[in-house]
Amino acid sequence: MNILMTAMTGLLCLAMLGSAWVAVTGKGSGQRVSIAILASGLVSLFASVLFLILAAPDVAMTEAAIGSGLTTFLFFFVLSRVRAGRQDGS
C-alpha cells in the first residue's frame, strides 16, 4: 500500500514536471501559446491531486477550482483578444 502510494506519487510528480516543461519552454507544442496555457492548467490539475495525497482536501479544492479553472479561462480571454488583433494584419 505504502510502496504503491509512493510510486503513484512519483508518477504524478513526473507528469507534472513534464507538463511544466511543455508549458514553459514550448517544446513539443509547435510554439503555440494556447498549448502552453493548457499545459499550465494541467500542472495545476496534477497539483490538486498531489494536495489530496498530501492530506490537504481544502487546498486541493481551491487549486482545482481556481488554479486550473479560472486562471486558464482568464488566459484564454486575453489570448483571444490578442489573436483577434493579430488577424487584422497589424
Binding site: 514550448g26 496555457i37 490537504a56 488566459f75 490578442v82
Partner: peptide
C-alpha cells in the same frame, strides 16, 4: 503571455513545497 504562464507554474511549485 508565456512569461505569465511561467510565473503561474512557479507559484504552484511554492504552494506544493509549503503544503
Amino acid at each position: 503571455l508565456r512569461m505569465i504562464v511561467a510565473f503561474t507554474v512557479a507559484d504552484t511549485g511554492v504552494n506544493i513545497v509549503i503544503v
